[in-house]
Design a binder for these strands. Structure first.
Length: 350
DNA sequence: ATACAGGCTCGCC
DNA sequence: GGCGAGCCTGTA
């Protein structure tokens, strides 16, 4: 492994070797060099067609918390593969390592990327299934290209156990701390012009790894009272008592019930995991943002409506892709609020 | 500075 | 079986 990592320095060296055929653009020269040596090393530079996709918005919509902006793109991990991805119009440019040939999960990088980002979701059909009310229309127009991604189950579950009573910025910190403390370091291809050493991506630690840790260790990652829940759930998952993969075949109701039996998982977290890791596009997580939207926009005259009634309403009203509708409403509300608070700050500054 | 955050759990009615 | 308080900690 160390041998392999050492050889990753080769592409940097490649920049010193001019390619006679490439004279116009220095950056394309570098890309070709990256590509050439990358292929030798098992690192690929590929392009994935991605029409109807907005990478930046998707990664900033509060469904995934570990991608970091870098140059024109983002560095992160898809399962255990370190990846750099940037969007150029309708194409994703991706650098990442192919799975080892002996791996049983081996599949082309392009397939992995397309699957992870939900590029096969029929977005036009999904949006057409939303209710046609003004609030939903505004959210839909605002969130063009926002997709629900397919996250690894354990990673998603563990991250959302950590999310309770936390703002996005803090969830990111927790995710990063867990990865750096317990995950496996992987070198990632940087964007052009940076040295490779700047880019280490950490995989999300397995349930088995976290099960071996202690509540004290976990608390060092600023988990607070969530540490106990995360540890208990990690033990259930790693022991096989909770078989996350096998749960894929369960009905929505049974899957939700099983998830809610896990320590630290209530209806909100269960719905997030169903939506972001189990492809249950109907799951409708209700957090404080969505609850605010539902109350203010859909029930402005009924301030005393019970939370349970909101749940029943949202499950029926938003239809078969309610989870997508929820994500659009959520992101729209969050971005509006941020814009408003920025405007206030700017106005106050004058 | 000091509420308050993308909740869950438990104890109390 | 619904309701409220407590839990940890960083951010706005």
């Amino acid at each position: 492994m160390s041998n392999d990592e050492g050889r990753l320095n080769a592409p940097a060296f490649a920049k010193l070797q001019p390619d006679r055929q490439m004279t116009k653009s220095p950056s394309s020269l570098v890309i070709r060099a990256w590509s050439f040596f990358g292929n030798i090393l098992g690192m690929k530079l590929i392009e994935v067609p991605a029409p109807g996709f907005d990478l930046a918005m998707t990664l900033d919509s509060g469904q995934v918390f570990h991608w970091e902006e870098s140059g024109g793109g983002f560095v992160g991990a898809i399962a255990d593969i370190a990846v750099y991805v940037e969007q150029r119009r309708n194409v994703l440019k991706v650098r990442g390592r192919e799975m080892p040939a002996k791996s049983s999960r081996r599949q082309p990088l392009s397939t992995m990327v397309a699957h992870y980002f939900g590029l096969d979701h029929p977005l036009a059909e999904i949006c057409a299934s939303f209710p046609n009310d003004p609030i939903m229309i505004a959210a839909r127009n605002f969130c063009r290209g926002l997709r629900i991604i397919r996250q690894p189950k354990w990673e998603c579950l563990a991250t959302f156990i950590c999310s309770s009573m936390k703002q996005v910025a803090h969830i990111r910190q927790i995710s990063k701390a867990l990865r750096e403390e317990f995950g496996i370091a992987r070198k990632a291809f940087p964007e052009r012009g940076r040295t490779i050493d700047n880019y280490v991506v950490h995989t999300f630690p397995s349930a088995a790894r976290l099960a071996k840790s202690s509540e004290r260790e976990l608390r060092k990652c600023a988990l607070g009272y969530r540490a106990k829940n995360l540890l208990a759930t990690a033990r259930l998952v790693s022991s096989g008592t909770a078989d996350l993969e096998a749960w894929s075949s369960l009905s929505d109701a049974n899957l939700r019930a099983n998830l809610c039996n896990l320590p630290g998982v209530g209806a909100k977290v269960a719905n997030c995991v169903m939506l972001f890791a189990y492809e249950r596009l109907r799951a409708f997580p209700i957090d404080v943002w969505i609850e605010r939207v539902l109350r203010q926009q859909y029930f402005p005259r009924n301030k005393r409506i019970a939370t349970g009634q909101l749940r029943t309403f949202s499950e029926n009203y938003f239809g078969e892709h309610g989870g997508y509708a929820q994500q659009y409403l959520f992101h729209h509300a969050r971005m509006n609020k941020n814009a408003k608070s920025r405007a206030r700050t700017a106005a106050a500054g004058k």
